[in-house]
Simulated assay, not measured.
Amino acid sequence: MYSARTRVENEQWVKEIETVTDELDLDADATSTATDLFLSGVPEAERSKRAVMAASIYAASLISGQAQSQSDVADAAGVARLTIQQRWKELLRDAGMEPPSW
């Protein structure tokens, strides 16, 4: 879980998550899940935040049953597909979830 302070300190990223999930036509539950995943594992390095944001959105799309391709999420979030591929499973594990094995 994350603190209210974490949310306030990362408000620009929360807004970016909302923008990207809107572009991908994900619902409010997916947006909320992506936000929770992101804020639960916000990296300290500013340059890593976009990657974690994109991985959070991709993972949330799977969790919510609104699966998006890694390429579509990467394009909408402004990262490389490989960035998502390398991070999303670890992000789920860190959140206490077991990623699919496919």
Rank of each mutant, 00 (worst) to 15 (best):
A76G: 12
A30S: 11
D75C: 04
S40C: 09
A51C: 06
Q85A: 15
E46S: 14
K89C: 01
E44H: 09
A74F: 01
G41I: 04
G78T: 09
S61R: 01
M1T: 14
A77I: 09
E18A: 13
E9F: 10
A59R: 00
A28F: 07
T83S: 14
L92A: 12
S61N: 09
A76V: 10
F38V: 06
V14A: 08
A4N: 12
A51S: 14
P99W: 02
D36I: 01
A76K: 08
S40A: 12
L37A: 08
A54G: 08
A55R: 00
D22T: 13
G41C: 07
E9P: 00
A28Q: 11
K15P: 00
T31R: 08
L82T: 14
K89D: 05
T19S: 13
S56K: 00
A76D: 09
A30H: 02
T35L: 01
Q68R: 15
A45Y: 09
G78V: 11
K49W: 06
F38H: 00
I17V: 14
L92P: 10
Q70V: 11
S69A: 12
R47D: 15
A54D: 04
I63S: 03
A54Q: 02
A76Y: 05
M97I: 12
A51Q: 07
T33D: 05
A95C: 06
A67V: 12
A80Y: 04
R47G: 10
R7S: 09
E98N: 10
K15W: 05
E11A: 14
P99C: 07
E9A: 13
E11L: 14
L91A: 06
Y2A: 13
E44D: 14
G78F: 02
L82P: 01
Q85T: 12
